[in-house]
Structures are given as structure tokens and as C-alpha cells.
Design a protein around this nucleic acid. Structure first.
Lengths: 198, 198
DNA sequence: AGCATAGTCGAACTATTGTTCGATGTCAAG
DNA sequence: CTTGACATCGAACAATAGTTCGACTATGCT
């Protein structure tokens, strides 16, 4: 029953704040919240905002405009969806990509991440054609990691890595394909998660 | 080579704008951009912002504070991660959940979406233990849809749906489990995508 | 040289926005 | 009935932030 000890009004303001933020991309001003909540005095909103801040539900940020944010909201980073082949760990993340993928920016630096669209069925069972994978730039990896390997000619492939005394072996999870040595390729990154539309 | 016809300065401002926004949760003010870009006059930023607006790279939003946004940024919604069992299509998305999952809010109303953690291996091959699935609230579904079914006792399960003349059948994708009729259960929603950590 | 483009500055102006104050009303608890 | 928490209002104030203006410096093109 006890909803964090929030009064209905506070609950409503919190809800409006969250909705506005995701709708517009930035938080509302105090007066915009006035309109949304149907009250006429900015102080009414300010009053509730203070209460919410006391309870730790809002970011402490007084004085600045549009700075009221729900604290519980994990910070989200938009990582670039580089297409089928990653070009390289270049900086310009706002030019080429064919889109962006939102990820929760909790573990590590999100600037080290990028996304890739999977093509083909060589990794079937693990990765399907059309899947989106989230990759972290790194030049080394461990056995059994799924890695992105890039070749000088611009080609790239996603395979499971096997570290053997003889060298690095790439293993397609689909048994209809044969494992092969990495050759001239270099590891570009490690696949850390996948997103699949059903 | 031609980078959208952007000058280095414009490129930089765009980059700073994007970074600030994802870092703070809201866009910077003109003067904050001044500091970041190392210029002293607000007009310098304003000048470049106008150029970027002309090229359609920024949201048209004059007069308001902190309203400069990169247009290419897909709007992101945080949908509630309800845990193992969805309680119901209630509004209070900012209270109970054990977390939030970011999704691109392009198709349909993101308020109709929620996330669930998958438990068990009855859907193996399609869904693994620990996967996060994104579900849309709906009370009906088609054959072969993966659906969330809720029972009165508070239990819930994820299975593949089969519409038969005799009634609705739930099919575990794992052949080690047997299909069974939906019984007293009701469809709570349809699984539209999955997120898996590797 | 003449001219257009890109970039910058500092100051001033205006509008927006956060904040504060005193006053008022409601409602349940003591 | 008095007290306290909850809620609201309107007005006023101060700080912040968007906008505009005139002037100035490069650079490359004609």
C-alpha cells in the first residue's frame, strides 16, 4: 500500500516529469509542470519538487533551468550503430552511423561501445541474421569470447574465439561451417550483448 | 570525405552537444557550450547553432532554454523492468520496478511496453535463463507469438502461443517440456524483443 | 584590391525561469 | 478547538539564458 510515502500529488508530479522528459528529450521547466499539473502557481510545483528532492527521488540541482530529473533513471548512452562492418575506433560518432542504440551506461565507458548488425548464419544458435550486437572496442580477448574481427580489406566478421598454442582460431557456432585461423585479421572488439526482434 | 558539409567547428559543437546531453540528461545552455568549446561570446555558439539548424541537424526550438537537441537522436523511453512476474498494466511505472530498460520509442506508445526477466529453460533455444524480454501489453495474440500469460494466483509464464479450434495452447520451445492448454490463464502481453548478455 | 565566407568578441537587451514571501484553505489528529 | 501536514495562490524578485548588434580578424577566390 505505502507507495514510498508519496502523496498522490507528488506521485503525479514525478510521473509528469518522467513522461515529459522522455517525450521531449529534456526536463520541463517549473511553469511547464504547472500547466501539466493544472496548477497556476510556480510555487506549488516548487513545493512538491522540494519534497521529492528531500526523499532523494530527484537530482539535487537548484538554480539551473530544466534541471529536475528523476534520480532513479539510469543514465542512458546512445551508442552508434555502425552497420554491417565496423570501420574502426574513430571518434566521429555523429556522422556515419546508420542509427543509434540505447544502452544503460553503468558498466565502463559507453564511449568504448558500438553496435553492429549481424549478417548471415555462421553463428547460428548464438546469433541470428538481423540481430544487433553491442560490442566493446578491445584488441585482445579470451577463449570462448565472441569477437569482431576486422581485415585490412575492410571486411569484418563475428566469430567465437579460441586461443590455441598455434595461434588464434575463429569458430563459427554453426557446425555447417569450418573453424579457421584468424590469419591477417585483427580483433576489433568483444560482443557483450545482443538485441533481437522477435 | 564530405562530412555533411560541416565545418570542423560545427562538427565540434554538435559533438559537444550530444556528449553533454547524454552525460547530464538534458541539453546545455548556450553559455555552457561557450565554456566547453572554449569561446567567450554566446553569439559565437548561437551563430553555429543557427547554421546547424539550417542544415536540419538540430531541433527547431528557439526562445526556450536548453532546447538545442540533435535531431538524429532517436527518442528513448525508459520502460519498467517488472521482475519475474508482471503485476498488471497499471500506470505507476515509477514506483515498484526493479529497474528500467531503455528502448527506442519509435514504434507505438512506449507506455504500453514493459520488460521482464526470464527464468528457467522451458523456452530454451528462443529464450535463455536470465534474458530480458520487452513485452507489449495486449490481451490477444496470434499463433506462434511468444506471449506472457498470467494466472490469478500471481504466477506468470512465457510460452509460445498456438491457436487451436479447441482453445489456446501454450508450447514450451524446449522439447523436454510438454505443451499444455492455457487453462485459467490470460494473455498479458506479447514478447517483441529480447536482450541477452553474453 | 575587392569580396564573400567563416569565426570571433563584448556588450546590451529581453524573455524565460527558479526562488521566495505572505496569506489562505482543507483535513485529520490530539 | 488548536495544531500540524498538505496544498494552493498571486505577486514580486533575482538569476539565468536566448537573442541581437556592430565591429573585427583571418582566409581564400576572382
Amino acid at each position: 500500500m505505502e507507495n514510498n510515502g508519496l502523496t498522490p500529488r507528488q506521485q503525479q508530479i514525478l510521473e509528469l516529469l518522467g513522461r515529459f522528459t522522455t517525450d521531449h528529450g529534456y526536463p520541463p521547466t517549473v511553469r511547464e509542470l504547472c500547466r501539466l499539473a493544472g496548477v497556476s502557481s510556480p510555487d506549488t510545483i516548487q513545493y512538491h519538487l522540494d519534497k521529492l528532492r528531500e526523499k532523494g527521488l530527484l537530482e539535487e540541482a537548484k538554480g539551473r533551468s530544466r534541471a529536475a530529473q528523476v534520480t532513479s533513471m539510469e543514465r542512458v548512452a546512445m551508442i552508434p550503430l555502425l552497420g554491417l562492418v565496423p570501420a574502426g575506433p574513430t571518434a566521429g560518432a555523429y556522422a556515419e552511423p546508420m542509427g543509434h542504440v540505447p544502452v544503460v551506461a553503468d558498466r565502463g565507458d559507453p564511449a568504448q561501445l558500438f553496435a553492429l548488425k549481424v549478417k548471415g548464419d555462421s553463428m547460428q544458435a548464438t546469433l541470428h541474421d538481423g540481430d544487433t550486437v553491442v560490442v566493446r572496442w578491445q584488441e585482445t580477448a579470451s577463449s570462448n569470447d565472441v569477437v569482431v574481427v576486422r581485415y585490412d580489406d575492410g571486411e569484418a566478421t563475428v566469430k567465437r574465439l579460441k586461443v590455441k598454442p598455434a595461434g588464434l582460431i575463429l569458430i563459427p557456432d554453426n557446425p555447417r561451417y569450418e573453424p579457421f585461423p584468424i590469419g591477417e585479421g585483427r580483433i576489433a572488439g568483444k560482443v557483450i550483448s545482443l538485441i533481437r526482434k522477435l
